[in-house]
Each structure stands twice: as structure tokens, then as C-alpha cells.
């Protein structure tokens, strides 16, 4: 599962790629990764990190008991994934060298795969990729400090799953449909093909009408799909579509016991909108519905 090729997803990232190339070049000249700075403070926390070991955190769950999830951890060698507990909540972690994890295919899929394993038996609050703490005590402190918030979010996410939906279309195909269905556009098209001399103004008008018709259709499709799926989910979230073929990029939060209903609805919609291409994924940890930002400070006694 980890090695599956996302070949189908490759094409649509291309449009955005060129546009955002400049900031990426800038980023490459950014200062050395945070872990390099860690050495400056090594003296203060030498005892804790003498072995160069840190803890990679995957998610926070509800559990009063220490749990083991097997040797599925991130890193070059498989590591044990287990919990660090505080009261009735726990962080799911594995040992790791103190390092910045590259967002490589292996690493992000390992992060996701642990979350999915844990999710089979627990409600998870996923941690964003690449968070490494130096010591067990720090993680306990994290759980203690944000305990109420974690507990609240865990109870709200209880027995809910996230599903993703991206809807794509081939706009040229839709343009053909529009040309058939919309009187004004059809007439202009005929004029354009029969007209002698300059067709400039007719062409401009045609382009404008087609663009407006495409947008109207996209909005109509999206609204009706969202409306129907909102009826079978408890919450939904819109993300920005990626590339010019995508008209909808959304996430839905669905109660576990409504999964079948949601699934059936999705398939029914797919059959109905035969001109659209649906990319339906999940279940996911509720990444799109949990947004916890934590400020970390160095403790005074750690100097």
C-alpha cells in the first residue's frame, strides 16, 4: 500500500508547478534546518538526548492504557509505534534520531500509514508531518498543557471519518455540450464558421460567453454536489481546487455509522454526472476538520 504509485494524480499538479517555482528557489537558500540549531542547546538537555534519540509524534488518541501498534514507525529501519500516556489521552510515537524528516514519499506515507493503522481502532487527532520532540517528558507536557483542548476535539471527532472528493472535468468536452445547449453561443459559433472577413469581435464575444457559461456550469455542479453530500455528512470543507481541470476539492466529515449511506450517495452522484471525473478517497484521519496550533516555549529551568 505504501508504494502505490499516484500516477493518476501527476498530471493535475503541473499547472501550479510552474507558477510557484520562484518561491521554491528562494526556500532552498533558507537557513539550515531547525535540527542543526538543536546542537546549540545540547548542553542544557544533554542528559535527555545523550543518545541522540527523539520521539516522532503521529497523533493524539483517547487511551488510559499504554498501547503498542507494531513495528511500523517512520525511519530507515522499522521502529516500534507505541503510546506515551497522560491521564486518559495518549500521543502515538516512535523513537527516531533527532532529525528533520524530508517530506519524501516514504516518510509522508509512513506518517499517514501509522495514522490509518491507529484509526482502525481509535479516534485520532492527527499531528502534522515531521514533528519530533526530544524527550518523553516534553510530550507528556504537551498532553498536559493542551489536555482540555485535546479531550474536547477527541469527543467531537468520536466515531467520525473524513472523506475527500475532488471533481475534475474536461472543459473542452463541456464546451461542446454548451455549444449545443445554449442558443446564443451556438449562433455565434455558426456565424464564426461562415463569416467572411474579420471575425475578431465575434470571436471575443464567443470566448466571453463560453467562459461565463463554463463558470456558471461549474458553480451549478459544485453547489448541487455539495448540497447532496452535506445531507449525509456532519461537516464539509472546501479547499482550493488544484489546476484548471479541478472544479471541486472538498472534504467531508461522516459519522462511522453513516459511512455506507455516504458511499452510496457518492456513487449515485457519480453515475448522474457522467461528464465529471470523481476522485473519492478515504477514510482519512480528520485532518481537514481539526486545526490545533500550539505555541511551544522553552521552559525557564531548561535555560
Amino acid at each position: 500500500m505504501k508504494k502505490t504509485s499516484p500516477s493518476s494524480s501527476k498530471a493535475k499538479t503541473k499547472p501550479g508547478a510552474a507558477a510557484a517555482d520562484a518561491p521554491s528557489a528562494k526556500a532552498r537558500t533558507a537557513p539550515a534546518p531547525a535540527v542543526a540549531k538543536a546542537h546549540k542547546h545540547e548542553g542544557h538537555t544533554a542528559a535527555a538526548a545523550a543518545d541522540g534519540q527523539g520521539k516522532y509524534v503521529y497523533c493524539v488518541i483517547h487511551s488510559a492504557d499504554p498501547l503498542q501498534f507494531g513495528r511500523i514507525g517512520i525511519g530507515t529501519k522499522p521502529t516500534d509505534v507505541r503510546t506515551i500516556n497522560y491521564k486518559d489521552i495518549a500521543a502515538v510515537v516512535s523513537d527516531t534520531p533527532l532529525q528533520v524528516y524530508d517530506a519524501t514519499r516514504e516518510n509522508v506515507l509512513a506518517h499517514e500509514s501509522v495514522n490509518e493503522t491507529v484509526m482502525k481502532t481509535h479516534t485520532v487527532i492527527p499531528m502534522s508531518f515531521g514533528t519530533v520532540f526530544k524527550t518523553r517528558e516534553d510530550i507528556v507536557e504537551l498532553l498536559r498543557s493542551a489536555y482540555d483542548a485535546f479531550l474536547d476535539v477527541l469527543s467531537k471527532m468520536q466515531d467520525k471519518l473524513e472523506f475527500g472528493l475532488k471533481v475534475l472535468w474536461e472543459s473542452q468536452e463541456i464546451v461542446r455540450v454548451i455549444e449545443q445547449e445554449e442558443e446564443d453561443i451556438r449562433r455565434l459559433k455558426t456565424e464564426l464558421s461562415s463569416q467572411k472577413g474579420s471575425t475578431y469581435f465575434a470571436r471575443v464575444q464567443y470566448d466571453r460567453l463560453v467562459a461565463a457559461a463554463l463558470e456558471a456550469r461549474s458553480e451549478r455542479f459544485v453547489k448541487s454536489i455539495m448540497d447532496e453530500l452535506s445531507d449525509v455528512s456532519v461537516a464539509s470543507r472546501w479547499n482550493k481546487p488544484i489546476g484548471d481541470k479541478m472544479i471541486l476539492n472538498a472534504a467531508f466529515l461522516v459519522p462511522r455509522d453513516k459511512e455506507g449511506v455516504f458511499d452510496a450517495k457518492m456513487k449515485e452522484i457519480g453515475v448522474r454526472y457522467s461528464k465529471l471525473n470523481f476522485r473519492y478517497t478515504g477514510p482519512w484521519p480528520p485532518y481537514n476538520f481539526v486545526n490545533i496550533r500550539l505555541k511551544l516555549e522553552r521552559a525557564k529551568d531548561a535555560k
Binding site: 532552498r28 535540527v35 542544557h44 538526548a49 514533528t131 516555549e297
Partner: peptide, 17 residues
């Protein structure tokens, strides 16, 4: 959240780096 250390911190641009 006060902790003794948080050493690794990765963000978008850093991820790209």
C-alpha cells in the same frame, strides 16, 4: 505549552528545502 525543548520544526518552505 512550555516544554524543555522542541527541536524539529518543519514547515512548507522548509519541507521543500
Amino acid at each position: 505549552v512550555v516544554v524543555a525543548s522542541i527541536e524539529t520544526y518543519i514547515r512548507y518552505s522548509e519541507a521543500v528545502t
